[in-house]
Amino acid sequence: MINSVTETAMPASPCNRICCLNHSDVCLGCGRTLQEIKDWHNADSTQKLQILQNSQQRLAAKPQFDLRHPEVTPSE
């Protein structure tokens, strides 16, 4: 019997290996909350798309920092 269920592509994790949580437990690298990071593995495609949308909104709303050297202030 042929399986008529087609697999839909699961969204890729937005993790970019800059894993550092702020005071609100939001990752500065990908914009996901700690709970969203923990839920990612078991989330279905729809849930992952919602997490991606939420994380992109968070990243767009936060000030951009140089995470490589956050303690260094550029000199003029």
Rank of each mutant, 00 (worst) to 15 (best):
35 Q>M: 12
34 L>I: 12
34 L>H: 13
5 V>A: 11
52 L>A: 03
67 L>V: 02
74 P>H: 07
75 S>I: 15
40 W>R: 08
34 L>F: 12
23 H>W: 07
54 N>Q: 04
6 T>N: 08
76 E>G: 11
50 Q>P: 09
8 T>M: 03
62 K>L: 09
18 I>A: 13
74 P>Q: 08
59 L>Q: 11
13 S>F: 04
60 A>I: 10
66 D>K: 10
12 A>P: 08
57 Q>N: 13
43 A>Y: 01
40 W>M: 08
39 D>H: 10
23 H>N: 06
63 P>Q: 14
10 M>K: 07
75 S>V: 15
37 I>C: 05
27 C>S: 14
11 P>M: 07
64 Q>C: 01
20 C>G: 03
20 C>W: 06
43 A>K: 02
34 L>D: 08
60 A>G: 13
4 S>K: 15
63 P>C: 13
42 N>G: 03
62 K>F: 10
66 D>M: 06
69 H>E: 11
21 L>Y: 01
68 R>V: 02
24 S>C: 06
34 L>C: 15
45 S>G: 10
73 T>K: 10
46 T>Q: 15
44 D>T: 04
52 L>R: 05
1 M>F: 12
13 S>I: 08
74 P>V: 07
28 L>D: 00
45 S>H: 11
31 G>N: 00
64 Q>M: 05
22 N>T: 03
35 Q>S: 06
23 H>M: 10
52 L>N: 09
14 P>E: 04
31 G>R: 00
48 K>N: 00
67 L>A: 06
50 Q>E: 15
73 T>P: 06
75 S>E: 14
55 S>Y: 00
30 C>G: 01
71 E>A: 10
14 P>L: 03
15 C>K: 02
11 P>A: 07
11 P>H: 02
22 N>L: 06
54 N>F: 01
66 D>Q: 09
20 C>R: 05
18 I>E: 12
33 T>Y: 00
8 T>I: 07
17 R>P: 01
69 H>K: 10
47 Q>K: 09
63 P>M: 14
48 K>V: 00
46 T>S: 13
49 L>G: 07
76 E>N: 11
56 Q>T: 02
52 L>V: 05
67 L>K: 07
5 V>R: 12
32 R>C: 08
7 E>S: 08
7 E>M: 05
49 L>S: 11
19 C>A: 12
16 N>T: 15
14 P>K: 07
28 L>R: 08
45 S>T: 12
43 A>S: 07
16 N>A: 14
18 I>S: 14
1 M>E: 14
7 E>K: 05
76 E>R: 05
11 P>S: 04
13 S>P: 04
25 D>Q: 11
52 L>Y: 04
71 E>S: 12
63 P>Y: 15
22 N>S: 06
12 A>F: 04
62 K>Y: 13
49 L>I: 03
42 N>T: 02
21 L>M: 06
53 Q>H: 08
8 T>W: 06
16 N>P: 13
76 E>M: 11
31 G>K: 00
27 C>L: 13
66 D>R: 04
7 E>A: 05
66 D>E: 11
29 G>W: 02
17 R>M: 10
19 C>N: 02
9 A>I: 15
25 D>W: 06
26 V>F: 03
